[in-house]
Amino acid sequence: MNSLILRAATRVLAPMMLMLSLFLLWRGHNLPGGGFIGGLVATSAIALQGIAFGPEVARRTLVLPPAVLAGVGLVVAVIATLPAGLVELPFFTGLWLKLDLGDGAILPLSTPLLFDIGVFLVVIGGVCAILLALEEDPETDQAGEP
């Protein structure tokens, strides 16, 4: 699809959607949202890029190959399960570190948040891997046996 309007719109929309996805990720613990929904929004942004400018551009946005990005997300999620072991609590126990930023503002850092970031990354990486594979030209990528 080589629509000019789509390209122009994507140029504006995609960054906004990515910002939105981060916002949804952050607020998810208290309001509708969360890592998964955030991830899906980000995925939509990247899929849109893929449609507008081609999969290569979308891949550049992701920096890492999508499957590897999903792997990174998985690592992050798994790491979130572990710190509890350091303080002799069961597997996956949520730990909270409330940073006082002054002025009464508190930045709650926690393993559930870390876990949600992992979710966010896995969703982006995983779904983008499938979408981008499908968006690619089918004629050139038949690596399997006939």
Binding site: G126, V127, I130, L134, P138, Q142, G144, E145, P146
Partner: peptide
């Protein structure tokens, strides 16, 4: 969703092969 996405890709590959 994960299962369906895979299954759709498989359907495509079934058609290709």
């Amino acid at each position: 969703f994960g299962l369906l996405a895979f299954a759709l890709v498989l359907a495509w590959q079934a058609y290709v092969r």
